[in-house]
Simulated scan of single mutants.
Amino acid sequence: MSELADRVVQALNTLEPEDGLFAADAVTWHSFDEVEAPTVPDTLESVRGIRTVVPDFGLVEVRTTPLVDGVSWARYAVTGTLPDGTAFRAPAALAVHVDGSGQVTRIEEYVDTAQLAGLFAALS
């Protein structure tokens, strides 16, 4: 079985989370806006929305850590090609929190938004 954080990244890349991966009340928080939103459906819908503008948007070069004290980490790069043909790449990390039943209850994403300025401009 792959690491928990790896399974979350896979769910974000495929937009098809495995059954029972996320708790019904799971939330996602971003370092750049400090907003907390429901993981399902909001986070998955956000990725779908990004892909309408950047079809090759993805999380690549994924490295994960085993679950320790209820948290598993994923380090990866956010990549894609903007409508003007410009490629972007931004290193990022997810802290994936899990409850006693093994379901994800919280995702915290850390990314330098300066490296994603072109993406945010294309989305606005």
Results as ranks from 00 to 15, higher is better:
residue 86 T to G: 00
residue 101 S to N: 12
residue 80 G to Y: 11
residue 92 A to K: 07
residue 118 G to E: 11
residue 88 F to H: 07
residue 89 R to T: 09
residue 83 P to S: 07
residue 93 A to K: 03
residue 110 Y to E: 06
residue 99 D to L: 03
residue 104 V to L: 02
residue 89 R to M: 04
residue 87 A to F: 00
residue 85 G to M: 05
residue 100 G to N: 08
residue 81 T to P: 12
residue 81 T to L: 08
residue 79 T to H: 07
residue 91 P to D: 15
residue 113 T to H: 15
residue 110 Y to C: 08
residue 104 V to P: 04
residue 78 V to Y: 00
residue 91 P to M: 03
residue 90 A to D: 09
residue 84 D to V: 07
residue 104 V to R: 01
residue 109 E to K: 10
residue 100 G to M: 05
residue 119 L to A: 13
residue 111 V to D: 10
residue 78 V to D: 06
residue 114 A to P: 00
residue 95 A to K: 03
residue 105 T to L: 03
residue 92 A to W: 04
residue 98 V to E: 08
residue 92 A to Q: 10
residue 99 D to G: 10
residue 99 D to C: 06
residue 105 T to W: 01
residue 118 G to K: 09
residue 118 G to D: 11
residue 114 A to Q: 14
residue 78 V to S: 06
residue 86 T to N: 01
residue 97 H to A: 13
residue 117 A to G: 09
residue 107 I to A: 01
residue 116 L to N: 12
residue 83 P to I: 05
residue 105 T to S: 05
residue 80 G to V: 04
residue 103 Q to C: 09
residue 117 A to L: 11
residue 85 G to R: 05
residue 91 P to I: 03
residue 103 Q to E: 13
residue 79 T to F: 05
residue 110 Y to R: 02
residue 78 V to N: 11
residue 108 E to V: 14
residue 86 T to L: 00
residue 91 P to L: 07
residue 96 V to E: 06
residue 117 A to P: 03
residue 119 L to D: 13
residue 78 V to F: 00
residue 80 G to W: 09
residue 112 D to K: 08
residue 81 T to I: 03
residue 89 R to V: 01
residue 82 L to P: 02
residue 89 R to D: 09
residue 113 T to K: 15
residue 81 T to M: 08
residue 80 G to R: 05
residue 85 G to E: 04
residue 80 G to F: 11
residue 104 V to G: 02
residue 112 D to M: 05
residue 87 A to P: 00
residue 93 A to W: 02
residue 81 T to H: 10
residue 107 I to W: 01
residue 117 A to T: 15
residue 89 R to L: 03
residue 119 L to C: 12
residue 112 D to L: 05
residue 80 G to A: 03
residue 104 V to D: 01
residue 107 I to N: 04
residue 98 V to H: 02
residue 117 A to H: 10
residue 78 V to E: 10
residue 119 L to Q: 13
residue 88 F to L: 04
residue 81 T to Y: 07
residue 114 A to F: 03
residue 100 G to T: 10
residue 96 V to C: 15
residue 82 L to K: 07
residue 113 T to Q: 14
residue 96 V to Y: 12
residue 88 F to W: 01
residue 86 T to D: 02
residue 113 T to E: 14
